[in-house]
Design a protein around this nucleic acid. Structure first.
Lengths: 340, 340
DNA sequence: GTCTGGCACTCATCACAGCAGAGTGCCAGT
DNA sequence: ACTGGCACTCTGCTGTGATGAGTGCCAGAC
């Protein structure tokens, strides 16, 4: 038996009411709040079918219905209309993001904005080094045998590493290394650099080769191989909204998962399709997050994507609103990055 | 009536047992678990006095006693012996902190280590710019009218800002500015720079003065005036240990407070006496944190202090152990910074 | 065939009562 | 100054009804 239009309408009504009230919704309440044009008995029959198909369930025999993960999924895929942001919201986003002084500030403001607008936990990934190009490499002598390597990427990221040299290097040596590395690497995507870095070492004058090799290994190891990802989190306090009801009593496992950067990266760092992605409850691979939903998307200047951002909340969330907000924020951040 | 030795001993026993069991402790249980040499009736009398004096209280009439904030305070000040860390713990700290590649990494590792060892929420402040000196200033041309200013501090902090120039600047211009600013500012403490920066502008050749003024204002505004503090947090999941018992039911307000960097800075950024500081319950100025205790201290290379770190947990915490751990971690981090 | 009104049934929630046990305060005795 | 003993107070637990929301199902209407 397939689902006719009215049954879908019933499902939508259940999802909307449940998200709003946070209480199991019964057949009678449904016909009162929505113009379904049929009696509660009919709705009950529809509900029985929806339950049969696995879209809703009853917490206990004499309670109303609650959407299952599958129910939310159907709702998101077929039933929800995209909610447009109000002009006031748009202005709020713009005003909030403007005035960021550097990349840290951008990420910081973005994550707080996202948490505030969606009233959920927000995560923003820094622009990925793997998707960045080298804008400039700077070598700053710290002592005769130590230099600090500063890499500035086109995405605004700045990474620094201390390099221990095998022997003392003069100021001229450093200047020369700086010139050469920049000549070779500036403008290149970081992922493309390994052969270039190798070439740099090979082409180097023998007396400077040791120093250059040292530099090269730090460069490769820390910036490319470990290809360090960073991210920022905000809004954990929002997990406590809705009392003990969401997250089956303890938000312990959720908080634990949020502490693991690797997990967070998996959640929002999955950037292939450039489309907004929604993971609902059990669809999450992380066990600790089976009672949460994640809405994530990529961002970046123009059409390119340099990082991910998203929010995490109870499966019982306002999907249309959250999706709209996440998309809008991602777009604004992308525009902001494009200006640099 | 003042407290004689036995009464203090009773208080200590109550604190220790309560911290361990998390349950109100009664007179009978006390004499069983500790060698007090007196009967439970005598202990009851002592308890009555301790309660009179405000050091303990009963949650309800027929329950055991629980320490008050004042009780914990007395315990910390006069009754607790410093707990020495085990060699294993020391080695763990060392091993964990070694292998940090840059300042971000140091802070990151430190905060996680601290959260893990104390099993509480940990906070680590980045070395304060206000307490740093300039090691090097780098100017990187981004376009003809934009340069990126990178400041490297002796504490390892690296800050970058985009500077919009009033007009185009040649490569030579930039090199010259770079030379001059470094000549003047390198080695100076950031707080001492304002007059020097002003002098830089005044001494500048007229044709470059506009550019220099621009640079100077960014330098002053973002690095000195706003004197940006950063910090890192970890271990929020530890708040959920002890179930709903701590934090009178909701950790909502605590999580909210932890989102505010200003609040966290107040908590751990109070660095004057270089001694470990313990704030218990009501002693915290932040209302949301009246049910928590904070143990904080400063850290830095050698005897100087460049930042703060600490942990936050329920008032019912193992003070001697926590204090010992916080101190030890701070010392190791200081040593680590001294090596750079 | 589809919808509707009606009715019996289930089960969580709440209030109330009674009981057990922990812990106290106090007093008289050593 | 300490101790044993005892009455007293409360919390927490358990069991019992009563309540009521919500359901499933069936017979009848359209």
């Amino acid at each position: 038996m397939s689902l006719d239009d009215r049954k879908l309408e019933v499902l939508r009504a259940i999802v909307e009411d449940y998200v709003e009230t946070q209480e199991p919704v019964g057949s009678k309440a449904l016909v009162e709040r929505h113009q379904l044009g049929v009696s509660s008995a009919t709705v009950r029959n529809d509900m029985a079918v929806l339950e049969e198909e696995g879209y809703i369930r009853q917490p206990h025999t004499s309670a109303g219905r609650v959407p299952t993960d599958a129910g939310y999924r159907l709702f998101v895929d077929r039933l929800s209309k995209v909610k447009a942001l109000s002009p006031a919201e748009r202005r709020a986003i713009e005003r909030f993001l403007l005035g960021a002084v550097d990349l840290d500030d951008v990420v910081h403001r973005t994550v707080r904005l996202l948490a505030q607008l969606t009233r959920q936990v927000a995560v923003v990934q820094y622009p990925s080094l793997a998707r960045s190009s080298v804008r400039h490499l700077e070598l700053v002598p710290i002592s005769t045998t130590r230099i600090m390597l500063v890499m500035i990427a086109d995405t605004g990221r700045v990474e620094q590493r201390l390099v221990e040299l095998p022997g003392p290097a003069s100021n001229d040596d450093v200047m020369e290394l700086r010139r050469k590395t920049n000549e070779k690497l500036a403008g290149q995507r970081l992922v493309d650099t390994p052969p270039l870095v190798q070439a740099l070492v090979d082409e180097c004058a023998p007396d400077r080769r040791g120093t250059m090799a040292c530099l090269a290994s730090v460069l490769l190891e820390t910036l490319v191989e470990r290809s360090e990802e960073r991210l920022m989190l905000a809004g954990t306090a929002n997990l406590t909204r809705g009392g003990v009801l969401d997250f089956q009593g303890t938000l312990r496992p959720v908080l634990e998962a949020l502490e693991e950067e690797v997990i967070l990266l998996k959640l929002i760092g999955d950037l292939e399709p450039s489309k907004t992605r929604v993971r609902i409850g059990d669809e999450n691979e992380i066990d600790n997050l089976r009672s949460t939903s994640v809405v994530s998307t990529g961002y970046g200047p123009g059409a390119t994507i340099v990082g991910g951002l998203g929010v995490l909340g109870p499966t019982r969330m306002d999907y249309p609103g959250t999706i709209a907000t996440v998309r809008a924020v991602a777009r604004y951040v992308g525009d902001l990055l494009a200006q640099n």
